[in-house]
Design a protein around this nucleic acid. Sequence first.
DNA 1: TATGAATGAGTATTCATTCAT
DNA 2: CATGAATGAATACTCATTCAT
Lengths: 181, 181, 181, 181
Amino acid sequence: MERGYVATSVDDIVGRVQVARGTFYLYFPDKRALLAALVDGFFERISLAIRSIDLSPQAAPPLVQLRDNLERLCDLALGEPKLMKILLYDVPGLDAELDAKLRQFYAALRIYLEESLEEGQRIGLVRSGDRALMVALGIGALKEIFLTAASDTNAPRTATEITDEILRFFSSGLLARAEPE
Amino acid sequence: MERGYVATSVDDIVGRVQVARGTFYLYFPDKRALLAALVDGFFERISLAIRSIDLSPQAAPPLVQLRDNLERLCDLALGEPKLMKILLYDVPGLDAELDAKLRQFYAALRIYLEESLEEGQRIGLVRSGDRALMVALGIGALKEIFLTAASDTNAPRTATEITDEILRFFSSGLLARAEPE
Amino acid sequence: MERGYVATSVDDIVGRVQVARGTFYLYFPDKRALLAALVDGFFERISLAIRSIDLSPQAAPPLVQLRDNLERLCDLALGEPKLMKILLYDVPGLDAELDAKLRQFYAALRIYLEESLEEGQRIGLVRSGDRALMVALGIGALKEIFLTAASDTNAPRTATEITDEILRFFSSGLLARAEPE
Amino acid sequence: MERGYVATSVDDIVGRVQVARGTFYLYFPDKRALLAALVDGFFERISLAIRSIDLSPQAAPPLVQLRDNLERLCDLALGEPKLMKILLYDVPGLDAELDAKLRQFYAALRIYLEESLEEGQRIGLVRSGDRALMVALGIGALKEIFLTAASDTNAPRTATEITDEILRFFSSGLLARAEPE
DNA sequence: TATGAATGAGTATTCATTCAT
DNA sequence: CATGAATGAATACTCATTCAT
């Protein structure tokens, strides 16, 4: 988290945790395995935070469920800022194996979101458009705001503030609505 | 571009360019300096693609100018996919010095965009909201879509298609407009 | 026996025997001590197989006694091929301490055999010649044939066949007897 | 040569030769490669010392040619005692790859010698017998005497003395000829 | 300008050994 | 007697960098 994965030696790690060099390899086969474990664990928590939207009548309104999802992700980002930064900023491009892990996660996420968008379009909740691009735009917006939230220390926002702003962004974009004449 | 910065040795580089090892150091003080030069050059081109929106009456409508900006960026992403991927995916988290360079660029960009948003809000082009968060959301959306455009080879979109989708996203978000009763 | 001494870790050993790592050190002070014990035990069995030739009138003819000695060694080599291979092929050059053990054993053997040759020469059983060299030649021939017998699996010979061939070698060499004119 | 291959670190090697650690890897891909190169080179020299026996009438008598072969091998053993010791004593059992190299060399040598014995038997120069075992006995005798010659420093023999003794061994064995009645 | 042989600091990894339980 | 978690010294190997030619 401090020096980045490459610049951090196994010596640094065991030095910090006050364990012997060999002990590290008792728990991780590799230096990379430590990071992989971190990433896996964090992906797991992210997956748990995302819940499918229940469209049955007795369920909460879809927008409320969407908001809950976003708020859970915000909480995660604000609660684990360092992990968030590692995942979104450091890990990409580090290593072929880790990259594969990322690709796999995002591919699954994209498929899931594209299907969700399709469903949303069918029931009139989501506007029409190129779903693949819409998903990319949406994921990008979320990644960046979570990274900002996790990194920004001087003007922190609450999870609620961030969630509100995301929802406004998703529902209205950035531009002002053209006044109907 | 092929193996990533860390996994690429100076040997690999000079081998590819058919130069002697020492020659590299005649042109770059460092291994990192090569990447820094690449990054600098690309930042330069990005900066040139972004032009301030001219609000004077004789200028083109602001939305058209915004569209032109986005299209120039799209062209860049589609024209230099490898550099784009390096910049957006590989470089972050690689190295303290390069990170500083990135931070500096994005900080300047954010300030510029926040001021633009403020101006936009004043003249009614941009909706109200937390400008810092809006900028983060917007930058994130752009980064991701450019990265996708640069990496995605199986279902490529044209610069126009991407630009259209970005503009719709910025002007209306993702959700359907609630029907006025 | 499978991977060689160096490539075999204490982990491999205790894993195979289903004992805990610490238990090994309850019985052997060292990793090397295990091999040393193996070597010692095998040297012991070799020593038991070699019996001094009794020249008294009531004893069996010397050549028969020699044959019995060789046959006992053959039986050992064929009965413990893995140990034989370790002793003759793997152990030499492994480790200073084990080398010393080997040197000691062979030095004693050489002295014993040189004395035996001397006695043999005196009573006309052994031809004249440089006894030290003769012993070396004889020991080498035996080592190699026992190693071959222990390793060769595709065309195995019986102890009797090998013993016969050794005796012919010791009594006539390899070349045909020059015809007396 | 001093501490054995395993106990000798690359540091020891470069320290002795006064070269930097990296320089070693400029010339050898591996620590093992150094030993492999040594072994290869020595095998080459051994192969050159062994010349096929020319049975044509104008050639020297076969026994003289055999003697020349043995003497060349003796010269090699006495001239490169350290290499000889490494090859015959240290290398076997060290490493799977080197073992394969040894096996290959000896397999070829055995085939060559068995064919030579067969030829020798046909023309009445070599006595009858199990050729595979005869070759093993002969090779073993040579290995040991060359190793002894290379290692023994306190009572050194000349190449001629050793060659003489080998020839006597090959032509008459060790035992005295039984007196014809 | 260009070369490429030499450098040596730096690092991941292994594995024999110990010792508290 | 037995365990196995913890240890840390030891070592092969890499690679960015230098510099004499």
